[in-house]
């Protein structure tokens, strides 16, 4: 999946605050053009990790590399590759949208100033750009925040809970926008506790719990692994019941609407189908229940989703 050097690589990250380890062991890599989801319940260490990624918090141990630049030893160069929104878009309400962009662009040099109009156009804020930010809606602030993050022409976009407070239309729009950016080669690191969101957006995810990354992987693989349940519509049920029971992983069947449900691997399903046919059962439907990311999450974290 990854070509060449990862845009973001994190190894053995730790953070101790007042003797307590908040982030215990976080490692992952984000490749070019990849949308990487960082999932975990509130309080798992997501925000602390993100703040370490952008140099706001100094890690106790571990190495962060952005485009090959070590964040600890060469923070300026590393951070020039990054655009970020940490928690909320950080804006000066008493300035206009344009002035907010100008402030940041001015910090980064003339190349960023030249990009203001283009970036504003991309987040579709051009017509309200000269109004005070105080008058902006939450969605507009979010878009302005993204415009700020894109000003420096970053290789990596870091977004912390970007869908917080957005309405469904806003979320949909954001998702489409991020997809476009990724298609153009930008890597996106995005944290969230809203699993359904991430499932629609991310290529890969890392799941963090209690300060530790407990799963990392391609989202389709993770979901497939968690999709263990099969629903059978078969008649007559009294003949089929003991057969299915024998083939099920845990030997248990439950009645659900429109059939019976059990946990089976693909091999078990094919073996059971053969035997049902031999015994003259009529098989109408065998459907594997597609697990959601939420199911993956609950299986790996053992519940307790805040």
């Amino acid at each position: 999946m990854m070509v060449g050097e990862p845009v973001l690589s994190v190894t053995g990250l730790q953070k101790r605050v007042r003797g307590r380890l908040i982030v215990k062991d976080v490692s992952f890599e984000v490749g070019e053009g990849e949308i990487f989801g960082f999932l975990g319940p509130n309080g798992a260490g997501k925000t602390t990790t993100i703040r370490m990624l952008v140099g706001l918090i100094r890690p106790t141990a571990g190495i962060i590399r952005i485009s090959g630049h070590n964040l600890q030893s060469n923070p300026q160069e590393a951070l020039r590759q990054v655009g970020c929104i940490v928690e909320n878009p950080d804006l000066y309400p008493y300035l206009t949208g344009y002035e907010n962009l100008y402030q940041l662009a001015w910090m980064q040099g003339p190349h960023a100033v030249a990009r203001i109009a283009e970036v504003a156009e991309r987040v579709r804020l051009s017509d309200r750009l000269h109004d005070k930010v105080r008058t902006y809606s939450l969605g507009m602030r979010q878009r302005l925040g993204i415009a700020q993050a894109l000003l420096g022409n970053p290789r990596l976009l870091i977004l912390d809970e970007p869908t917080n407070g957005l309405d469904p239309a806003g979320i949909h729009e954001l998702r489409a926008f991020l997809r476009t950016l990724a298609a153009q080669g930008l890597s996106i690191f995005i944290s969230s506790h809203l699993l359904a969101e991430m499932e629609l957006l991310c290529d890969r995810v890392a799941i963090i719990r209690d300060g530790r990354v407990i799963r990392t992987g391609d989202i389709r693989t993770l979901v497939a692994e968690a999709s263990t349940d099969v629903i059978w519509r078969v008649e007559p049920l009294d003949v089929a019941w003991p057969i299915l029971c024998r083939h099920a992983t845990d030997g248990r069947l439950t009645r659900v609407e429109g059939g019976v449900r059990c946990t089976m691997s693909d091999e078990q399903v094919s073996a059971a189908t053969l035997e049902l046919a031999e015994r003259g059962c009529k098989l109408f439907e065998v459907a594997r229940q597609r697990a959601s990311l939420e199911d993956v999450f609950l299986q790996t974290t053992g519940g307790g989703l805040a």
């Binding site: 140099g55 706001l56 923070p75 300026q76 160069e77 951070l79 950080d90 000066y92 940041l104 910090m107």
Partner: peptide, 14 residues
């Protein structure tokens, strides 16, 4: 208090 410090400090300026 406004959070804007995060923007100032993540722009690659010391």
């Amino acid at each position: 208090s406004g959070g804007t410090i995060k923007m100032l400090l993540t722009r690659g300026v010391s």
